[in-house]
Design a protein around this nucleic acid. Structure first.
Lengths: 366, 366
DNA sequence: AGGAACGTTGACAGCGCTACCAGCAACGAC
DNA sequence: GTCGTTGCTGGTAGCGCTGTCAACGTTCCT
């Protein structure tokens, strides 16, 4: 006909089939389930496709099959180092495979998350990775109803929607405080920013550990909803000092805050750990090279992302994991900044080469 | 017929059209070009769509129209803070619009980039954002031939494929060195990691500035192909010191390295800036709160991403920017770490509150 | 030998949308 | 009054692929 459509100039599956001398449907099967073909046809289709440089049309495939090969990922922030590590893991696991990653940023808003979820689900994704366990009721309902595998990442908790991978922020915070106790610190402040649900649970862990030791005092806690930053760490610490000048130690909800506290100490000529010990959270790379080196709670962010995507892909392809809830645990990496309190204001651990002693713990499920 | 297809249970455009009492094609037009409809039909289709909760099937749309609403983004790294800022800008600019972002990571390999480009182009993206100006010849040819708008980001150079937004890393490095000269520093080392093309151009800028002042010495340059980190900054600086113990200043190719150098100085009890001045690159947040505060070259990463995506979307929709090459420039943010050299080893600028003096420069095109 | 079971292949009919073109009314120009 | 011209609308025919089911040949069983 006189139709002058763009026609895309692309090689179609039918062309491949023709060159291979098979029907289009057989060629189609080659790309979806090669084992179903006889070896002879398989090789013929394979070489025909290679010869023509065939690239499947994903839109046509999605339209005909009623499903896409898109994995939706919902994370709260693109800036936060923590998520970039997780993302890297996700991208690494999906690379080379048939699934593509569709990323969206909820900006720490569960309402925004709900909106994005609705958007994603409408496109019938192959699978979904969502952050955390604090969805709205509506979001949860949509997730339950979704006919694709779902992985919740970053933390573990009761009632997984489907699969879950993370660790207990509560237990991790308790372990950090326990470490400070061991080192002889008693009056331990808490500094937190953003106060998203995971930071809140770290605070809860801190509070419970302090209460267990009958050392809790609300005045030791300084938090803000403001997004975290190094500068903010210094500012919050300043507030804390103004309120409680004689604290022993500070447990920071993340490493940026910890670095800010360290700088603020230096500015005020407060010896670390001699006068004040510092513990961070996440164990970002710089913690090991700061002066003094900074104690932190190591979390397996890259592995979390990678495993989440791997589990998800397996599940999409029908191989559900035996263990749908995976606790990746954490480790308290003990460094100079939290070493034992001594009256002369000098750390007991010294030198950059001092071994990083580790306390490894799987977080206990609750 | 007795076909028992999943049928997806979704509202189709035809249903919307029926409810609105128009033909499907008119309903289709409502979503693509509402102005083409009479006001009466427009409102009828609109309310019908809302009433039924219609969500367009993107696969069908892509198949029928031979184009997708996907913007492909190729960046070299997901870890690097610099790119997460750029990405945030890109996502922010695309949010709420019809285009979705498809991200891929080239891992600083132009071969990988070429492979990904081929993959992307096969899906007929609506537009493309690529990093830098150092594509393979093959990649460049594909980009030239692509029938979609393209923005190259992160730097500017001759021969844009299409649009381009960034700044001159060469000029920025020269400005940083010029600032150190002004402050009386002469024997200025260079520390660089990864050595991707942009870092290489920063090195080139440093070399040219040093040569102009007849101060260049190859022994002042320490680089490695290893990915950058704070720890690496300390290690490279250690190498530099071993080679040239009497340097005045260090220009670091990025802020992580600069922080590592600062920590190493502290470890070695080298006064900053008294004995050695430090200048970083990118002006990450922590630079302003370090002790001493660290001088850096501020680059507009978020804005770069946001503007790139905005320009791209405009171009996709037929409104090409008047200015296809945009130089976002840079600013040398002068802080304590680079203040004037004095014999007593103490900075002339002191106190955290000291104003950040800025030298703003659009990078000169070449 | 008959037939059930399996593995392999192909025909058909769309998936939900849009490109293209034709048609139709309203309007102004000649 | 006739002829464009413009603005809006609709019909037709796919886009490139896959789900479904039927059909075929082969092997294995009883």
């Amino acid at each position: 006909m006189g139709r002058k459509r763009t026609k895309s100039g692309k090689i179609r599956l039918a062309e491949v089939a023709e060159l291979a001398g098979v029907s289009p449907i057989t060629a189609s099967r080659f790309f979806r389930n090669p084992e179903a073909l006889s070896v002879a046809k398989r090789t013929r289709v394979e070489s025909a496709a290679k010869e023509l440089g065939y690239v499947p049309n994903l839109a046509a495939r999605a339209l005909a099959s009623h499903r896409t090969e898109v994995i939706g990922v919902l994370i709260p922030s693109l800036t936060n180092n923590v998520f970039s590590d997780v993302l890297r893991g996700i991208y690494d696991a999906s690379e080379g495979g048939r699934y593509s990653i569709q990323l969206s940023n909820t900006r720490y808003s569960i309402l925004q998350e709900e909106k994005l979820l609705r958007l994603f689900l409408a496109q019938k994704p192959a699978g979904l990775i969502v952050t955390g366990i604090d969805q709205t009721a509506e979001s949860r309902a949509m997730l339950q109803a979704a006919d694709c595998p779902i992985v919740q990442i970053m933390e573990i908790g009761p009632d997984p929607v489907d699969m879950m991978i993370g660790f207990s922020h509560y237990d991790a915070a308790r372990a950090a405080v326990a470490h400070l106790f061991e080192q002889g610190h008693r009056k331990i402040g808490f500094v937190g920013a953003r106060m998203d649900p995971r930071v809140q649970r770290r605070l809860d862990g801190y509070v419970s550990a302090m209460k267990d030791a009958a050392l809790f005092d609300q005045r030791l806690v300084v938090t803000t909803a403001t997004p975290t930053s190094v500068t903010l760490g210094g500012a919050l610490f300043t507030d804390l000092l103004a309120r409680e000048p004689d604290i022993d130690a500070v447990f920071c909800a993340n490493d940026d805050l910890a670095l800010g506290v360290l700088f603020e100490c230096r500015r005020r000529e407060i010896a670390v750990p001699g006068q004040i010990a510092i513990v961070g959270f996440n164990d970002l790379e710089f913690m090991a090279s700061a002066v003094p080196t900074l104690t932190s709670v190591r979390t397996n962010r890259y592995e979390m992302g990678k495993t989440a995507a791997t589990m998800l892909i397996e599940a999409i392809e029908g191989r559900r994991p035996e263990q749908p809830v995976l606790d990746l645990g954490f480790k308290v990496i003990e460094r100079q900044s939290s070493s034992a309190r001594r009256s002369d204001g000098r750390p007991t651990v010294s030198g950059a080469g001092a071994a990083n002693k580790m306390i490894a713990l799987p977080s206990s499920h609750d």
